[in-house]
Design a protein around this nucleic acid. Structure first.
Lengths: 345, 345
DNA sequence: CTGAAAGCGCTTACAG
DNA sequence: CTGAAAGCGCTTACAG
């Protein structure tokens, strides 16, 4: 039951725990332990399958070799995939991951942050909720290694890894315009977070650059907290209320999913009655008939960079700020076609 | 930077660390600490925002208040959703979750188990890979709280929480038969794991009960390790090779997703040329046109039971074995209709 | 009713 | 080249 400790090895090797600790931590040379003794200790450790007690080590060194991962929703396709790669990458450096979902709720985020601090994680990967500025500021000032994802806080310079939201949305709008669509609606969240703003800005910029009208009434904002049914209802109402609507952009993957459902419920045909683009890819988009055109995020690269940036801080005490922005890719499928006739609505 | 400790409180309260520890652990009454002293300590702790150092406590008590969650693939819809609820439920008991994905690979599972042991998690929720019997046996003998999910090891009596795979597959087959389908194919994994066997057994039993033919050649097994493209190719070949095929059952959600793609690639129409049912629900199935009929697992209940069973062991030292089997629900959508004409293939 | 002391398993500054 | 000792922050058996 009981694990074997440094003491056990010391006793069997006929040396002190100090010496064992030095050797096992690769400081044999530095501390000038004889080759003979080192080898003996290493052999013994392997034979006894010695596993250092992380708690004891952590108590002494203040390091837990654990990172905290705070996402919006671990069950969401995007975050679940990021979580998977983050775990794999962190493992390469000997770190484990503690996770939690905020539901984009400030108090949940605060609770998670508190628990992770209490658990003494060595570093944080955080998807900030609205108004989390104070907590992030505190973390930053305490010099805790930290990197933000999916969004950042414009007021606080920190590490972050992001997709290029502006460019992704710009490309989407331009693509629709080039296909001949003109009455283009935009569905987003009520959140004022930077990633949503940048998507909106990119989209607006493309519309402007092409001289297309994009009035307020073409924009619908859906709160994060309402149920799927309510959201679908609101989207349906919105779409019915836009005369001549011929294309619609959804600013997040779950909104895109709701959008598909809304259009189905209205009895419209995607790609025929209305073109559809969503931000962020999803199995559903790839396999839906017709396929859903989307702005895809490089999930693998995002996750790799997140861990890389965090490890840089963790290991090299490098306190230079790292801000990584990765390109989004427009994935063209059948939900947008060359527009040939007027919308049927 | 430095957290405040029990010593700091003791000093300020003018008592010993022992007394502080007793009071803070709710043993004030039991240890007969005076009301006066207790109150003073509690107030001070709140004022100083005392947070016990979990590492120190863990080192002393051997408990980390952490559980290990080993899933097949955290990015998979089913496991991601389970992971989310597990985290929420565990949090209610003051536990955090360390997770990892096995990809159904024995060596990855071994690695995860080793790391979790080393991290001294208090309990395990495990999705066992094939041939993990020895490791599970060891864990069991060491009396570590543990509960298996999604599948169990028939040779080793342990706690587990499962969906009723037999019944789910039985219902699916019976439903197809009642709609008039006769040439029904079955796509599963090469894995011999119990959950796959039970699905197969349930399906076979229903076919038999209805006097329907179900020869070997109607069954296709796909290895877990091949790529999506290879799998889709194999499924296409298989379907083309079954003359008169009129319905097909996919034994996991990712196989169902591949199946949709395969049928699309063949240029067939789901629900018209061939009926389709998948085990396990998915956003894609709900929103696909036509909707995909499936056998849905009660994800929320599964996750709640997993945590509940683990907490029972963890807190009550209850070593009675708990085996929970939850009913599956057939969700009827448009991918299966009353059969009126011969298959078109 | 309360406290001094040991000990969980490590790491590391200090000494020789 | 190696070791004795202190200390990380707790909990708890023991003593009074």
């Amino acid at each position: 039951m009981k694990g074997i400790s440094i003491k056990d090895i010391a006793k069997q090797a006929g040396v002190s725990p100090t010496t064992v600790s030095f050797v096992l931590n690769g400081k044999g040379r530095e501390k000038r332990i004889s080759e003979q003794v080192s080898k003996k200790i290493l052999k013994l450790a392997a034979k006894l399958k010695y596993k250092p007690n992380q708690l004891a080590r952590g108590l002494r060194t203040g390091k837990t070799k654990t990172i905290g991962l705070i996402v919006e929703d671990i069950a969401n396709h995007f975050f679940a995939n990021v979580a998977k790669i983050v775990e794999e990458e962190a493992d390469k450096f000997g770190y484990k991951v503690l996770y939690g979902s905020t539901e984009d709720n400030l108090n949940k985020a605060r609770g998670l942050l508190e628990v992770l601090e209490y658990r003494q994680v060595d570093g944080y990967i955080i998807t900030p909720t609205p108004n989390l500025d104070k907590e992030i500021e505190i973390l930053k000032n305490s010099r805790k290694p930290m990197v933000l994802m999916d969004r950042y806080l414009p007021q606080i310079p920190t590490n972050y890894v992001m997709v290029n939201n502006f460019q992704g949305a710009y490309d989407a709008a331009e693509y629709l315009l080039n296909l001949g669509y003109r009455k283009i609606a935009y569905v987003t969240t009520t959140s004022e977070q930077i990633q949503m703003k940048e998507r909106m800005n990119g989209f607006t910029a493309a519309m402007k650059a092409h001289g297309a009208a994009f009035p307020r009434k073409m924009i619908k904002k859906i709160p994060f907290s309402i149920t799927k049914e309510e959201a679908v209802g609101q989207i349906m109402e919105f779409m019915k209320g836009v005369p001549g609507l011929d294309a619609i952009f959804f600013a997040t993957n779950y909104l895109g999913v709701f959008g598909i459902e809304s259009i189905k419920d209205l009895g419209w045909k995607i790609g025929e009655d209305v073109a559809l683009i969503s931000f962020d890819d999803h199995d559903l988009f790839r396999l839906h008939t017709p396929g859903i055109t989307c702005v895809s995020q490089p999930i693998h690269e995002i996750a790799q960079h997140l861990v890389q940036v965090l490890m840089n801080e963790l290991n090299q005490h490098q306190h230079q700020i790292n801000q990584v922005v990765l390109p989004a890719t427009l994935v063209k499928r059948e939900s947008c076609r060359k527009r040939t006739k007027a919308g049927t609505v």
